[in-house]
């Protein structure tokens, strides 16, 4: 039985796990971190996405043993302080979820995308979320939320830099209606 030491959401855990334990199973069943969910059995849906050493991975397609010595961030540790990460807030504000099952994975992948491409266009957002399936929203509001989060995070980074508060969104943006799907 491999003994693993993993840093998850800022806490270090050492556990004996059976070799076949999947990372997602370890997170959910050993650590009780059920925020990360399993949506498929085929590595396709991305609902189980977490960050491994800062890169997005599908945690159903990684063995817990492969995470030994590595750092994992899940949706539960994303904001760091227990509040809302700007991406979570943007999903909330833009109605980017309906049943919510895909949401943890969508948010983790969207954050990965913005760390690589801070100012993506819609095409880049869609390609960046290619590995995440949503059965409810039709994706329109998800794309809108990521665009919004990108704006907020860049404004936030600038505000941090200059010590200013980010500008509120324009009235037009606040009332923008979805152009497709349901809202």
């Amino acid at each position: 039985m491999p003994r693993i030491t993993v840093h998850v959401d800022g806490t270090t855990y050492t556990d004996d796990v059976s070799a076949r334990t999947l990372l997602v199973q370890y997170l959910r069943e050993h650590l009780g971190r059920t925020g990360t969910v399993v949506g498929c059995d085929t590595s396709n849906c991305g609902a189980c996405t977490v960050h491994l050493d800062g890169q997005s991975v599908k945690s159903c397609s990684v063995l817990a043993a492969q995470a030994d010595g590595h750092e994992i961030t899940t949706i539960e540790g994303l904001s760091g302080d227990g509040g809302q990460h700007p991406m979570q807030q943007a999903f909330h504000d833009n109605h980017a979820l309906q049943c919510g099952f895909c949401t943890p994975g969508m948010i983790m992948q969207a954050v990965d995308l913005l760390s690589d491409t801070p100012e993506p266009d819609d095409q880049q957002i869609r390609e960046g979320l290619e590995g995440n399936l949503c059965r409810c929203t039709g994706y329109q509001n998800i794309v809108r939320a990521v665009r919004d989060a990108s704006r907020r995070m860049r404004a936030g980074a600038e505000a941090e830099h200059t010590g200013e508060t980010p500008a509120p969104r324009s009235a037009e943006e606040r009332t923008a209606q979805p152009t497709g799907g349901q809202s």
Partner: peptide, 9 residues
């Protein structure tokens, strides 16, 4: 190839 998550691994 595949999607960003799969390309990371």
């Amino acid at each position: 190839v595949a999607d960003p998550q799969v390309r990371h691994r």
